[in-house]
Nucleic acid binder design. Structure first.
Length: 927
RNA sequence: GGGCGGUUAGCUCAGAGGCAGAGCGCUUGCUUCACGAGCAAGAGGUCGCAGGUUCAAAUCCUGCACCGCCCACCA
């Protein structure tokens, strides 16, 4: 019956869909707050709603789900909270592109209609990536899915803003920000991409004429400054030199006439100037350069803005007015040339910033923005990190985060876009008379309030001004940086600011699994807000997983065409194949050069398991194997003298279990996966299953139910069942399928339970059996030697009689006791023993430890080949002997090395000498 | 400019003082009754370079080279 219903083909796709539905329907993914078991909680890094699963996500969620399933089987009440991020700029850009296809811009719709449109888009496409995670097998609590703009979440965001505001940690002011002239918004420093070597550009050397009647009595006509952005000179308000620079000391305090503009500006001295660079004299453009802004603050210089939001020149002479920044650059250079003020031009690599969303060159620009004062927040994070309250894996990232926090700068949180959490700040038009102006900005009427305008916060839109009662209120038009809302993710998804049971039960979370690139952008900020607002660290462990690279070591990127779509891989190898193939190449702290071959290996492993299970189920129908049986397998009772292989496989199994558990506890997932792979394939399939075949044989008058068949059958089931539980977190689908077949197969009522909620194997040291391992190693060595002799000498496959030369009665006994399976796996008919040193005519031999095994020669054999083989072995022996002898004859070694090392070497020396002797004799006999 | 990581078989990577490993690839043989996506037997390595510590170094220390990443206001 079983033979009929166990399909020969392993088809991942069909069974994966089936089992996911099964798990989902039975509610195995859900965690309840009143579950008495210890909790284990993870909040996933919310992917952008615009996203589709890429290789980074695939790895990230493979790790998430392996850990979740492992902990669940370990008896934890596991909660994984899924969700998505509204991804302000990214999403707005996507929807704008959609509009562009209809020939519209967002201004054609206006703010409100546009937002409606974005919501529509989000409802339609925002869940795609979470669907893809389900295909991967993710066992998350989908009832608790969150979105960073859910009503409740939005309230948490505003609450956070207001609390920071009340503590004076939020301020509004003019600063140089990273301005994207395409997105028309400010960006934080972390949202700007910089190329290490800079980008090709020029360094222009410009002559600034000194004012003649400056009263300094100098004969210099010019001071020469160098710049990479000549167009900004139109906004210069000073020239700066280093105070100790001998070349310019006499000019400090002099006045220059700013070319093309005619403005008189001073020459000042500032320590920040590097005399080595360029000419040592710097043009100071306070409104367009962060360093110059600081200089201007120190010297009370005016700040002249010469560019608008879209990067066009304003407040400049007619010739340049309205020109785009790059056109203006050419025009300025031309004008300077005309006036003979351009001294020279050098090629130069310019350090440029680019918008992380649209790659447009960032313009550093003075702008009125909202900022968070970060020092006090960073201090909180530093404290918990220095106290080691959060463990980073690999550990070095904790130190890097500390260093980043120590040098933290204020965070620009306002964005001039529409999609996002609108800043909960209102202004009263009446109280702020004279401090505002109304400007048209696309479709919007924008009120621009002065830096010192009075503002107040409110969660709900307020009716009246708290000061004057006026209802002429205007909300700040800006929205918050997306990362401001994701910074509160762990506590906000659990219900903060309300004191929900979820928050009480699951916070702090236990693990944060993330890639390196958002360690500062996101992870560090969660630590700050978690400690500040939720009163505790947001997670106990940060697991930083490798970045997935192409096989050439390049970044995977859609635009470069170097990306690989995990969905294709899912189709090709199944979720189990993708998961296992990915995790075995994910070595901690090391970037991952993705190799599809590994997925092939993983899929092959799935098939290997499938076939092994098919063998076990069809070869032995003696009863149901259960987890209970696996747990209660009593070695002292079940392991009879004829069952060395059983003692051996249990020893190996439990050592593997110990190894896997240890690796899992340290999050060394690749090591755990490889340990299971090696055990299942090399030990269970290649040896134990083969050995069990003669034990299970039903003919030759032994009947089908004799004791031996029974013990081997039960062992096969037990070991396989345990292996499936071990492997389940890595390959959840195929293991569930096989486990159900193995366990629930013959039950008339379908078993409602699942491998998902079975107990994860624990090592039982009673099964560790070094003696069995040693004896098996010898016997396996014997089989390998016999096979190798046959393979090398082309001896046909028919069974042969072998002869073993050995004086050790125990070894003879060992071989005799196990001959029943040695015959099968070694294709041996019978064995005969002789004294060591004796020889057998018409036979070839090889050494197994101190024994020698002879295989008869059938007919002609290539003596040359045989000689070659022995000579090679002899020279290996000689090399090894030399090494040991040299070592042992070194008195320093004998004296200083630990005695057990010395002893082991002496043992080995004796053994090798004996082997050499035998080999030399064999060689001589060949003539 | 500062910091971090890497360099081990043809490829991708483990190994962290005491006999150099895995997967893939390669060679040879195999209709062995679970599996050819398999089985069996093999070949293949001055552990980046140069010094040092040690009885003993892929492994620890110093320096160098090359590759990759992060941070930084040299205009």
């Amino acid at each position: 019956m079983s033979e009929l219903t166990f399909p020969t083909a392993y088809d991942p796709r069909e069974l994966e869909e089936r089992w996911y539905r099964f798990w989902q329907e039975r509610g195995f993914f859900y965690a309840e707050v009143d579950d008495p078991r210890p909790k284990f909680c993870i909040t996933i890094p919310p992917p952008n709603v615009t996203g589709s699963l890429h290789m980074g996500h695939a790895l990230n969620h493979t790790i998430h789900d392996i850990v979740a399933r492992y902990k669940r089987m370990k008896g934890f009440n596991v909660l994984v909270v899924p969700g998505t991020d509204h991804a302000g700029i990214a999403t707005q850009v996507v929807v704008e592109k959609e509009l562009a296809k209809e020939g519209k811009t967002r201004h054609d719709l206006g703010r409100e209609k546009f937002l409606e449109r974005v919501w529509q888009w989000k409802e339609q496409y925002g869940g795609i990536i979470l669907q893809q995670m389900r295909k991967l097998g993710c066992s998350y609590d989908w009832r608790r899915e969150r979105f960073t703009m859910d009503a409740h979440y939005a309230r948490a965001v505003l609450e956070t803003f207001i609390r920071l505001w009340q503590e004076g940690l939020i301020y509004r002011g003019y600063r140089i920000v990273n301005w994207c002239p395409r997105c028309l918004t400010a960006l934080s420093d972390l949202e700007v991409e910089r190329n290490e070597e800079g980008e090709p550009g020029h360094l222009w050397f410009i002559r600034y004429p000194l004012k003649r009647d400056g009263g300094r009595g100098t004969r210099d006509e010019f001071i020469v400054v160098a710049t990479t952005r000549p167009e900004t000179m139109l906004g210069d308000t000073a020239v700066a030199v280093h105070p100790d620079d001998e070349r310019y000391r006499h000019l400090i305090g002099a006045t220059v006439i700013l070319p093309l503009v005619g403005r008189e500006i001073p020459i000042i001295a500032d320590e920040a100037i590097d005399p080595e660079f360029g000419t040592g004299a710097v043009k100071v453009t306070p409104a367009h350069d962060p360093a110059d802004f600081d200089i201007a603050e120190r010297h009370h210089l005016p700040k002249v803005l010469v560019m608008d939001d879209e990067g066009r020149m304003v407040n400049v002479p007619e010739r340049f007015n309205g020109l785009d920044r790059f056109a203006a650059r050419e025009e300025v250079v031309k004008a300077l040339q005309e006036q003979g003020l351009l001294e020279r031009v050098e090629d130069y690599r310019v350090p440029l910033g680019r918008c992380y969303r649209c790659d447009t060159v960032i313009e550093p620009l003075m702008s009125l923005q909202w900022f968070v004062r970060m020092k006090p927040l960073a201090e909180l994070a530093l404290q918990v990190l220095r106290d080691g309250k959060i463990r980073y894996l690999p550990e070095r990232f904790a130190r890097l985060t500390v260093e980043w926090l120590e040098n933290i700068k204020d965070w620009c949180i306002s964005r001039q876009i529409w999609w996002g959490h609108r800043i909960p700040i209102w202004y009263c038009l009446d109280c702020n008379k004279g401090k505002w102006e109304l400007k048209r900005w696309g479709s919007e009427e924008r009120y621009h309030f002065a830096e010192d305008a009075k503002a107040f916060t409110a969660i709900e839109p307020p009716e009246r001004c708290p000061d004057c009662g006026s209802n002429n209120l205007v909300q700040d038009p800006d929205v918050l940086d997306t990362w401001f809302s994701s910074a509160i993710w762990p506590h906000a998804v659990l219900g903060w600011p309300d004191e929900t049971p979820e928050l009480r039960q699951f916070y702090p979370t236990d693990l944060m699994i993330t890639a390196r690139d958002i360690l500062y952008l996101w992870v560090a900020r969660m630590v700050m807000t978690g400690v500040k607002f939720a009163g505790d660290i947001p997670f106990k462990v940060v697991y930083v997983h490798p970045t997935v690279l192409t096989r050439e070591g390049k970044r995977m990127s859609k635009s470069l065409g170097t990306g690989i779509d995990p969905l294709d891989l899912l189709d090709k190898y199944g979720a189990d194949g993708l998961r296992f193939g990915l995790i075995v190449q994910a070595e901690a702290g090391q970037d991952l050069r993705f190799h599809e071959e590994r997925l092939e290996m993983a899929r092959n492993f799935g098939k290997k398991l499938w076939n092994a299970a098919r063998f076990v189920v069809t070869a032995w129908d003696g009863g149901r194997g259960t987890q209970d049986e696996a747990e209660n397998f009593d070695p002292s009772h079940d392991l009879r003298p004829a069952s060395l292989p059983i003692r051996w496989i249990f020893s190996q199994l439990h050592k593997t279990i110990a190894q896997v558990n240890e690796a899992m506890e340290n999050y060394e997932l690749a090591d755990a996966a490889k340990a299971i792979y090696n055990f299942v394939w090399d030990e269970f399939c290649d040896w134990f299953v083969e050995i069990s075949k003669p034990a299970m044989q039903r003919d030759e008058g032994r009947g089908t139910r004799d004791e031996m068949a029974e013990v081997y059958g039960r062992t096969l089931v037990t070991v396989l069942e345990t292996s499936l539980r071990l492997l389940h977190p890595f390959m959840p689908f195929v293991t569930e399928e096989l486990w159900q077949r193995l366990i629930a197969y013959r039950s008339p009522v379908p078993d409602p339970q699942s491998l998902m909620v079975a107990k994860y194997p624990e090592a039982d040291e009673r099964f560790f059996d070094d003696e069995a391992e040693r004896q098996m190693a010898f016997l396996m060595g014997l089989v390998r030697r016999v096979r190798a002799l046959r393979a090398d000498l082309g001896i046909p496959t028919a069974k042969v009689d072998i002869v073993v030369a050995c004086d050790d009665g125990q070894i003879q006994q060992l071989i005799s006791d196990n001959l029943w399976w040695l015959q099968f796996v070694g294709r041996i008919r019978d064995v005969r023993f002789i004294r060591s040193g004796e020889t057998v005519p018409q036979a070839v031999s090889d050494l197994v430890d101190s024994a020698e095994v002879f295989v008869p020669l059938a007919g002609v054999v290539d003596i040359g080949k045989l000689k070659e083989r022995w000579q090679k072995r002899l020279s290996e022996l000689a090399r090894e002997l030399d090494r040991i002898q040299a070592r042992l004859s070194n008195p320093q070694f004998v004296e200083r090395a630990p005695s057990e090392v010395v002893f082991a070497e002496q043992q080995r020396l004796t053994e090798l000498r004996q082997q050499r002797e035998t080999l030399e004799r064999r060689l001589k006999s060949l003539g």
